[in-house]
Design a protein around this nucleic acid. Sequence first.
DNA 1: CTTGCTATTATACGATCGTATAACAAAGGG
DNA 2: CCCTTTGTTATACGATCGTATAATAGCAAG
Lengths: 219, 219
Amino acid sequence: MAEDQKKRRGFRRAPADRRRVELMEATLRIIASRGIEAASVRAISAEAGVTPGLIRHHFESKEELIGAAYAHHMEVLLRACVDVLEEVRDGPVERLASFVRRTLTPPVTGSQEVQLWAAFIEKIGHDPKMRQVHMDSYREFRQVLETLISAALFELGEAASPIRIGQLAIAVNAVLDGLWLEGSILPEQFPNDELVRIGLQSVSGITGVPLVQKDVAKQ
Amino acid sequence: MAEDQKKRRGFRRAPADRRRVELMEATLRIIASRGIEAASVRAISAEAGVTPGLIRHHFESKEELIGAAYAHHMEVLLRACVDVLEEVRDGPVERLASFVRRTLTPPVTGSQEVQLWAAFIEKIGHDPKMRQVHMDSYREFRQVLETLISAALFELGEAASPIRIGQLAIAVNAVLDGLWLEGSILPEQFPNDELVRIGLQSVSGITGVPLVQKDVAKQ
DNA sequence: CTTGCTATTATACGATCGTATAACAAAGGG
DNA sequence: CCCTTTGTTATACGATCGTATAATAGCAAG
């Protein structure tokens, strides 16, 4: 008969940077799939395939892990965005249109993305670090939009002042945020690529950059 | 010397409806001011001036209380919105403009409002009841917008099809959502009534309804 | 092969969570 | 004035939370 030997779980050592990323991404998966309330240190560590204690070895607190995961997520999102822009060989107008399309179609849209986003937004009201992460990522997104809009207007011979470019970027960012949100939460309300069509049409209306054929846009 | 008599706390009885509303509003205050994580049954009951057990006498679970609070909040918000519209004696175009202004200024904007909103949105991904509340309130808001936009376009002699009205309402709702969000989270980025100006300008661009003087809008 | 470092596991602790249950008391009707 | 009803308090329980601490073991260096 087997003696009741306590077998200690085997493991592999990983460099700190790698393990930190694994833990952050496990955190994101848990929040996205089961909500922020389910994101306990035990659930996260189980998702990452490690034991709970390891979290506090790599992060000072659960709060710091959440904040780091937020920053990591936004970084990945922005990187994907910039990479997409560099792929497009077309002119500035088509680049702006591509950006709109990419923003309003999966995998950028999706209920899990919204759940992640909402969970983080809820914290920025009472967590200065989360607020700072939000401000940084928001500013970077806006700068990308300003570049796109400025280039598109310049190509059309309607170059605008930096102040106006900034206003347009805010407005476009807002409409994209809102459409992304509604399209992600209630996708069944937007058959096919209606979301994209409304987005292109709205951005056209705001900036004056023609992104859709007008006869099609009217109906 | 006084014997250590355990004095039972005095209280007043309230009709069930009244008490339920008190508990829901206490819940909203807690979530808005301290976040969803702080909204424990103990914190909520303390805020409402009662003991924790009472919550489970009026609600089957904390989850049900949260859902009821969400529905109550959206109901109050929509009611305030409709009341505002009924006050305005101006024409359809000015009514639409008033609606935009009201949406993008306090007390509709505000970090606490965002915190409430984000806390609820985060739940609709894994809570069918919260999802239903969202769908209902979203639909009602959209219908109000459709009415406003339709009337404004009709007055301008540019009456549009119901399908197009629906698309416009979605787009306007999206841009208002996005601007409301950003203006509420980072109010310092929008001095004075710049948020309102961008909103009016964007809604004009989307719907074609002139809500701003063009010379002012350009700079 | 041995040694040292530290990433990782194992275990435990106190706090707080949502919930269950029973005693108490406020309010209205006989 | 008593009695019934039920809104309300008081208390307790088990589960789970984030965190602290010590033991273990992977892995590179010597």
